[in-house]
């Protein structure tokens, strides 16, 4: 059963996460992973938000148009990007000093699985074809707030589990989980804060393997 199409789901998730940043009244530094997280930038309309890319750039602008492409100016997903005013560059040790040192206000990342203990699995599906960790482990450990952006289920299989089956990226590092069907906060346990207008709580429980608590202030996702 597909409640919302894949494309609509991705846009809803990105828009909902952008809301978190659009309300900021002071400077916030964020790092966006590949996939849905990159799309979040399309919906941010707040000059207080600066995007850091772990390959050594603070002040990442929109993706470069064909005529603007500079092969030596890329984001961590290897996409050609542009600069924003005040942009700066630094080496990789300084970049991860920002990340590990707790200077990044939030990281938005994708995930294969999340569990009710706040564990995140997003670095490898052991199938012999992948061999890479990148900055995922540093980001979940170091960022002040870890926001996971992912589809609620994958081909009907639950992704929000009692216990991650895949190798984890970090222990209990989750702070917020946004899917097309629900928004959860994590504070020792998953707390449902918002639910999609298309479904009720019983349906959500059927689509979610993990146990979760329901916030007394439960709202509909509104993007």
């Amino acid at each position: 059963m597909e409640i919302i199409s894949k494309e609509k789901a991705r846009i809803r998730i990105a828009k909902r996460i952008a809301q978190e940043f659009n309300e900021a009244k002071e400077i916030k530094i964020i790092n966006l992973g590949v996939g849905i997280p990159t799309m979040v930038a399309n919906y941010i309309n707040n000059n207080n938000i600066y995007i850091q890319s772990e390959n050594g750039m603070l002040g990442v602008g929109p993706l470069a148009e064909e005529s603007e492409i500079d092969r030596q100016l890329i984001n961590a997903g290897r996409q050609p990007v542009t600069e924003t005013p005040g942009c700066c560059y630094f080496d990789s040790a300084t970049s991860f000093g920002m990340i590990r040192g707790g200077h990044i206000d939030a990281t938005v990342i994708g995930a294969f699985e999340i569990d009710q203990e706040g564990n995140i699995a997003n670095w490898i599906i052991p199938n012999g074809k992948q061999l890479g960790v990148g900055g995922a482990m540093d980001l979940v450990t170091g960022a002040k707030k870890v926001i996971v952006a992912m589809r609620h289920n994958q081909n009907g299989k639950p992704k929000i589990l009692k216990k991650c089956k895949l190798p984890i990226t970090g222990l209990g590092e989750l702070d917020m989980l946004v899917t097309e069907l629900a928004v959860f906060f994590f504070d020792g346990q998953l707390i449902l804060e918002e639910i999609a207008p298309e479904i009720d709580i019983d349906t959500l429980k059927k689509l979610t393997e993990a146990e979760f608590k329901i916030s007394p202030n439960l709202k509909k996702i509104n993007v």
Binding site: E54, A93, G135, M137
Partner: peptide
């Protein structure tokens, strides 16, 4: 090609998280 070479035993690979690698 790297995963292929590693799986066939042609090369050794040591994975280090990117920030740990830099530091």
């Amino acid at each position: 090609d790297v995963a292929d070479a590693y799986n066939s035993g042609r090369i050794e690979v040591k994975l280090v998280p990117q920030g740990t690698f830099a530091e």
